[in-house]
Design a protein around this nucleic acid. Structure first.
Lengths: 210, 210
DNA sequence: TTCAAATACCCCCATTTATGTGATTGAATA
DNA sequence: TATTCAATCACATAAATGGGGGTATTTGAA
């Protein structure tokens, strides 16, 4: 029996979803609420397996609700449920540990399937949402194979720069003279086309050299 | 009619998949190859809608094949097909613009459904893969709402530090004295618990303050 | 064999940072 | 009203950095 909590401000939809889910074999709706203002309490007392969470709700909305729950409970599966598949909300929800992201236009049968999937550790997503998620991945892309031809040693130095080490500390860490560190760093700056530690660090992050 | 190219080193599986897909209504397998050594040519001559790509292949493997295709063609949908849902390959594939990631144990009917989904711009993923993708998202997470209580002004300064600006340049940019920049930076260091520019920059990236 | 790259080291010196110890103003708030 | 705090500026000084010159050894590829 999958125990479900439901957060949805629209009374019709809330009723409808409750009926659908609670009326289905193997599902049990423990409660349905119009916003997340008491979600911390509700989750800890009802102990649901899955939370169906609308994003746009007056009062405490779904994203805030998500955060609140995730601050204390990493166990329950949270399925975001919205009308729009807009990039910003998707990203924010997933960043905050949502387990899935599905659109309200999802047909009932599919919805139940999704809940089931979420309950068993899956990550159900509407196709259009999944596509956007993947796009985000490729956007934060590595300029393929672009490590700027840094030599092994230079990469090591850059790693340590990123850790905030000073020249002196790097020298100690690598058992080489500080002057050697300097010449490595000069070479790194050349290759990365930068001329300061902070730029090098920034570039290392941006281009995932680290 | 969905035009499919297939890359799979195992002869049995290659045959089997070809039969399955080509034998199904609405699908057409244009070709099936045992590795990606000629993929650039094959893709440009066959112009498939979907590529089914095994990852582990001798010679030019699936990830390399993916990269090769994406270097010239952003249009075709590429579905990665593997035995294991190991984190590293998933991440790498998605980074390089794969459109989906499904396991070989996927039942035939589901497989066809996935190909269809990929062809129409979706991003089919096996549930376990989707779950891992989401986990990656929340791993690269912001310590929720944690901007270390930087004031507006301090954030601005940090932004410029990240851009590699020197104190002097920041002062000029913000129309304030260098000493003021200094005191802002001191405050920033305090709040971030660091004591150098490069550490601050690294932290800014890690915690997405920028 | 020759040559380029990578590695390691050295010196000099101007500039930049990091740190410390102040002060003043104005806005918010208790 | 008193107090706090962000934001601004000032002066001093030691340490670290960046940019400019170099040299020597090793290693692997042409």
């Amino acid at each position: 029996m999958i125990k479900v909590l439901l957060y949805e401000d629209n009374p019709q939809l809330r009723e409808g979803l409750t009926m659908l889910i609670d009326g289905s074999e193997g599902f049990n709706v423990l409660g349905a609420f119009k916003n997340c203002s008491n979600i911390a309490f509700e989750v800890s007392s009802y102990k649901p397996d899955v939370i169906l969470m609308d994003i746009d709700m007056p009062g405490v909305n779904g994203l805030e609700g998500l955060r609140i729950v995730r601050q204390q409970n990493t166990d329950v599966s949270i399925l975001m449920l919205t009308v729009f598949d807009d990039n910003k909300n998707i990203f924010e929800a997933l960043q905050n540990g949502a387990n899935g992201y599905i659109l309200k236009k999802t047909p009932p049968a599919k919805l139940l399937e999704y809940i089931q999937e979420a309950a068993t550790g899956g990550a159900p997503m509407t196709a259009s949402v999944a596509a956007q998620v993947l796009k985000m991945f490729s956007q934060i892309n590595i300029p393929a194979g672009n490590d700027y031809n840094l030599s092994e040693r230079e990469k090591q130095v850059l790693q340590l720069l990123v850790k905030g080490y000073s020249y002196k500390m790097i020298a100690a860490e690598m058992f080489i003279a500080m002057d050697t560190v300097r010449s490595h760093i000069k070479k790194i700056y050349e290759k990365l086309h930068v001329n300061s530690k902070s730029e090098a660090v920034a570039k290392a992050f941006r281009d995932r050299i680290v």
